[in-house]
């Protein structure tokens, strides 16, 4: 018994050592934006562009959350309003993040783009409830104390 406990302590000590080094290697940059009072994060490598003040052209016969298309330097990019997509009330201020999902550029309309942060991968925890947050694949606490919800862009588009 005594022996087993020793072994367990030893393992934990080693684990701590391991964790000390890990965050520097296994972290990822996230772009944080806010929408309806919540903070969301998108992997920075998916982000192509941050845009403001583009005229959105209405596109008929698409779901309401597709607000239309914009002309991004000659490329036609559809814009998805994340508020509408998540079933919230729309707002007028316009700030967009163009993300690349499966080779297609899609713009996401958000309230405001906040900052870029390094998030250690092991700090991202699974969401406790499975219902209602299908577009969110994980969450984590940011250094400033806010909670970031990791947005699953694939889910946002295909479903």
């Amino acid at each position: 018994m005594q022996q087993t406990e020793e072994v367990m302590f030893a393992t934990e000590a080693q684990m701590d050592d391991y964790n000390d080094q890990l965050p520097e290697i296994a972290s990822e940059k996230y772009l944080i934006f806010s929408s309806d009072g919540l903070m969301y994060g998108i992997k920075a490598e998916q982000v192509n562009d941050i845009i403001t003040d583009y005229a959105i052209t209405y596109l008929p016969r698409v779901p309401g959350y597709v607000r239309g298309v914009i002309n991004l330097r000659g490329q036609i990019v559809p814009m998805v309003d994340i508020r509408l997509r998540l079933g919230k009330m729309p707002q007028d201020n316009f700030c967009g993040i163009v993300v690349n999902v499966d080779g297609n550029n899609v713009g996401i309309l958000v309230d405001m783009v906040e900052q870029m942060v390094d998030v250690p991968l092991d700090a991202i925890l699974p969401i406790p409830t499975s219902s209602g947050q299908a577009m969110v694949s994980g969450m984590c606490t940011l250094p400033d104390g806010n909670t970031m919800l990791e947005l699953d862009c694939e889910q946002l588009l295909h479903d």
Binding site: R61, V62, N104, N105, V106
Partner: peptide, 14 residues
């Protein structure tokens, strides 16, 4: 051409 994402909604039929 329209973006694939938009085509997925079948706007061509309209």
């Amino acid at each position: 051409p329209l973006p694939n994402y938009v085509n997925g909604f079948g706007v061509k039929n309209y």
